[in-house]
């Protein structure tokens, strides 16, 4: 569906500034794909800095997920940083909870939490736990961390929205390695049974897990075909192409046809930091000072697309 490059200039975007005024009035703002790309770079820098400061955390998957997260938080999701528990908000479930740093970075840039506070990642007393904790951190819709479980929670949220005739949508991100968990497929069955077209699942298909390539550890075969066979509306995109992400969210994801949606995003683990790219070793390793400085320098140079 993306044989022709799309030129998408502007997108609606809820104004951060208005949120901070606490007026409760939402103002539409235009955000360009270029701005979303810039936000993604900022998110990557923040996430890498958090992991560096903590000397602990998961940079690889944070970097592969960054572009989708940017599109969701700065364009797509109807959320209110001043009222994170707003009952009509769109929900986001980070089923691959170990990449919490990239979500924390988005929560900071979006105004849920202060920019400085996220650097307390993994410290005692911090809201920014090693894995997302809804009791401690505003903007986290469900605590996750044990792989395979978050998608079920997203299904529960989507069923509630459907039964209550709410307009909110539930976005979930699962890892490809995470799809080795049987519970993922239980959740998928239920999403199809209950016709949850308010559920949009992103697969961060970065092809790596702790022990190496998914293909070697436990092959997942073609996830697009598998979701499709289970009854999802499914598409596959370049998960680092903001144009493709935005186009998919604008069209494919908005179809109210009684079917849940799956977007398989082909991504690169460690995307944007050359020495981390496609390296399983950077799944859960913190950079040292030299590595960190190089990472920031590369990220500031922008992402080659």
């Amino acid at each position: 569906m993306f044989s022709t490059p799309l030129v998408i200039q502007v997108y609606k975007y809820m104004s951060l500034q208005e949120d901070h005024l606490g007026t409760g009035v939402w103002h539409m703002q235009q955000t360009s794909v270029e701005q979303l790309k810039q936000h993604a770079i900022e998110l990557r820098k923040t996430a890498v800095t958090m992991v560096y400061e903590a000397q602990s955390g998961h940079p690889g998957g944070s970097l592969s997920a960054a572009d989708v997260i940017s599109a969701l938080y700065f364009r797509e999701m109807n959320v209110d940083p001043a009222n994170p528990k707003w009952e009509d908000r769109d929900r986001f479930v980070l089923s691959k909870g170990h990449v919490a740093p990239i979500q924390y970075a988005a929560l900071a840039l979006r105004g849920f939490v202060s920019n400085e506070s996220v650097y307390t990642l993994r410290q005692y007393g911090s809201p920014f736990q090693g894995h997302p904790d809804m009791k401690k951190c505003p903007g986290i819709d469900i605590s996750t961390g044990s792989l395979g479980q978050g998608l079920s929670c997203a299904v529960g949220m989507a069923i509630a929205g459907q039964r209550d005739e709410k307009d909110y949508r539930v976005f979930a991100m699962v890892g490809d390695g995470e799809c080795q968990e049987g519970q993922i497929w239980e959740a998928i069955q239920a999403a199809v049974k209950y016709k949850l077209d308010n559920l949009i699942v992103f697969v961060d298909n970065n092809r790596l897990q702790i022990d190496g390539f998914c293909e070697d550890v436990m092959p997942l075969l073609d996830l697009e075909k598998k979701f499709d066979a289970f009854g999802f509306d499914t598409t596959r995109i370049d998960g680092h192409s903001m144009e493709q992400i935005v186009e998919t969210l604008d069209t494919f994801a908005k179809q109210k046809n009684g079917k849940p949606k799956c977007i398989v995003c082909d991504t690169v683990k460690g995307k944007g930091v050359s020495y981390m790219e496609d390296q399983a070793a950077w799944h859960g390793t913190a950079p040292n000072k030299e590595e960190f400085e190089l990472a920031i320098k590369e990220l500031e140079g922008g992402l080659p697309v």
């Binding site: 479980q149 978050g150 079920s152 929670c153 529960g156 949220m157 069923i159 519970q183 069955q189 239920a190």
Partner: peptide
């Protein structure tokens, strides 16, 4: 949820958040 206890527990948790 059918014969899928793990999913049942997760769905219940999701419902409870609402």
């Amino acid at each position: 949820v059918g014969i899928a206890e793990q999913n049942g527990a997760g769905i219940a948790a999701g419902l409870a958040t609402t």
